[in-house]
Amino acid sequence: MAQVKWTLDPMHSEITFKVKHLMISTVTGQFRAFNVTAETAGNDFSQPGSIDVTIDVSSIDTNNEQRDGHLKSEDFFSAANHNQIVFKGTKLDVKGDEGKLHGDLTIKGITKPVVLTVENGGVVVDPYGQTKAGFTVTGKLSRKEFGLTWSAVTEAGNVVVGDDIKITAEIQLVKQAA
């Protein structure tokens, strides 16, 4: 079976994250610039050949310019030296509409294996004749495992930034003409 190529539909996709602040509330952010490509044997994603994600670190947006600048600094992502977050999928196990996406995630030059949960929204043909596939990808990772170790503690002993980062990606892909 011939390989089918898929590219990101950026108008219908987003990558967001949540992290605890002072351990009493949650801050939400997103990356505004990213790309996803995939190759599959057929349209159903049961046999993906590749799944590649690149995220522009400088596109981070937490709705606060000062915080975004801090996140781009050496304290966190070191965007000047590590301008991309890269995910290379190694295996996709989907049974029905749910599954696991295994891959290697590289942040700030550190690569670690991760397993993300995938909700397969299905494949449809849109009103313009384009074949589209939709997925919700969620996961949790430790920022400190990727060298994002900056921390501070309040007078009361509360940690300013939590270690666990919750990730949600709403991804829509477009099948490319053969």
Rank of each mutant, 00 (worst) to 15 (best):
F76Q: 09
S142A: 07
V86L: 11
V125Q: 15
T106D: 05
A177V: 10
G157D: 08
A79M: 03
A38K: 13
V153T: 15
R143Q: 06
E119D: 14
R67S: 04
G69A: 10
T40V: 01
H70N: 10
G96H: 13
E155N: 14
L105Q: 08
N81R: 14
V53N: 02
F76D: 11
R32G: 01
L8W: 05
K5S: 15
K88I: 06
H82W: 03
G139D: 11
E155F: 06
M11R: 12
F146W: 09
F17Y: 08
T149V: 13
S13Y: 05
E39R: 15
S50W: 02
W150S: 11
I15F: 01
E74N: 13
L8P: 11
K72A: 13
A152V: 08
W6M: 08
L173W: 05
V125R: 15
K166Y: 11
F135W: 02
G129T: 13
V174K: 14
V123W: 10
R32H: 06
G121L: 13
G42M: 12
A133L: 10
Q130I: 10
P113N: 08
N63S: 12
V27K: 06
T168K: 12
H102I: 00
A41P: 00
T16V: 11
S142C: 06
K166P: 00
H21W: 05
K88P: 01
E65A: 14
H21L: 09
S50Y: 07
M23A: 09
V86Q: 12
G103A: 03
L141R: 05
F34P: 00
T28Q: 13
L116T: 10
D68V: 04
S46W: 07
K20I: 00
V118S: 08
M11W: 02
I107R: 05
D126R: 09
V125W: 02
T136D: 07
V118K: 08
Q3A: 14
F17I: 08
D44S: 14
A133D: 09
T168H: 00
G129R: 09
H70M: 12
D104A: 13
N158Y: 12
E119Q: 14
V86T: 15
F34Y: 04
F34L: 02
T26P: 03
E74P: 11
G147R: 08
W150M: 03
D61A: 02
S151E: 14
